[in-house]
């Protein structure tokens, strides 16, 4: 029984990190309908910023959030403004040109990181890295618990933002129906720039919170991009609550899969769920929860 509980706890905590990674993606995919294949790479950029701040200015990762999120917001907005938006006007054979552009962006970000920081592994190890809370024999890793809490807070914040503020409403309108939003006077181009920036800022939070637990190298992005898709499809496009539920579902199923099937197939578990949801539950959990 202890095995089961500890596995589920590990899965839920991991789910918090996954949710943070996925929430930005769900926003971007929901509004712009493009797959952002540079998502993990944006997270990697945020992690390098966190690393530099910690290494040279001794800034705690939790404080660094205040730097990385705005920085990635700016970076994301610029990418959307100058690299992705121009493609809407370009006539091309494949509508997926924006997706392919994100592949290029991801490659360039990874290689720039490699050029500056080399392939070495970097890590940030504040004293609380390995601290754990114990309930009986069940361990809760402290940084992961905090990350989970922040994931929940960001989800609630984003939810309220999208529901209550004018900008948020415009974002939702654009996501639901771009043409109608345009008719109603929403500047769709500006909204997409804002959304991509926001998505990047959210994944920056994920990166910064992940760094004390994990480590850092230029190629880290790809794996997390994949997780972000799974969560987005699982939770439903554009659904903030879906992202957190999707994250936890993914985390727990991977954990259970790793413990009870095989650790080597841990990532395959996520992929199989992903396929099943794509085929049998298009729309994801959002279809069930309606939020």
């Amino acid at each position: 029984m202890a095995v089961f509980i500890q596995t589920v706890v590990a899965g839920i905590l991991m789910g918090g990190i996954y949710a943070l990674v996925g929430i930005g993606m769900t926003l971007i995919m929901g509004v712009m309908k493009i797959i952002n294949l540079a998502h993990g790479q944006l997270m990697m950029v945020a992690m390098y910023i966190t690393y530099v701040l910690y290494e040279y200015l001794h800034l705690d990762p939790y404080v660094a959030l205040l730097v990385t999120m705005p920085a990635l917001f700016v970076l994301g907005s610029l990418l959307q403004r100058y690299l992705l938006n121009p493609l809407i006007k370009v006539e091309s054979i494949l509508p997926e040109n924006q997706v392919l552009m994100t592949v290029g962006i991801g490659m360039v970000l990874t290689e720039l990181a490699r050029l500056i920081f080399h392939s070495d592994y970097k890590s940030v190890r504040p004293p609380y890295t390995s601290m754990s809370l114990y309930a009986g024999s069940i361990a809760f890793n402290l940084p992961m618990v905090i990350a989970f809490g922040i994931a929940v807070l960001l989800t609630i914040g984003l939810f309220i933002f999208l529901l209550k503020t004018d900008v948020g409403k415009s974002v939702r309108a654009t996501a639901q129906n771009k043409e109608a939003a345009l008719l109603l006077g929403v500047n769709a181009e500006r909204i997409t720039v804002f959304t991509y920036g926001l998505g990047a800022a959210l994944v920056a939070a994920a990166g910064t919170l992940l760094l004390p637990i994990y480590y850092l190298f230029p190629d880290l992005g790809g794996a997390f991009t994949l997780k972000a898709f799974v969560i987005t499809i699982l939770g439903g496009l554009g659904s903030t609550v879906g992202a957190i539920v999707g994250g936890v579902v993914l985390g727990v199923s991977e954990s259970l899969g790793a413990t009870y099937i095989s650790m080597a197939l841990k990532d395959a578990v996520g992929m199989v769920i992903f396929l099943l949801v794509l085929i049998f539950l298009p729309g994801g959990l959002k279809r069930l929860t309606k939020i």
């Binding site: 995919m29 997706v99 992929m271 794509l278």
Partner: peptide
């Protein structure tokens, strides 16, 4: 895009 995503998943599997 959903087709694209599905092929990524199958490839990884």
């Amino acid at each position: 895009p959903y087709f694209a995503l599905a092929t990524i998943a199958v490839g990884e599997i």
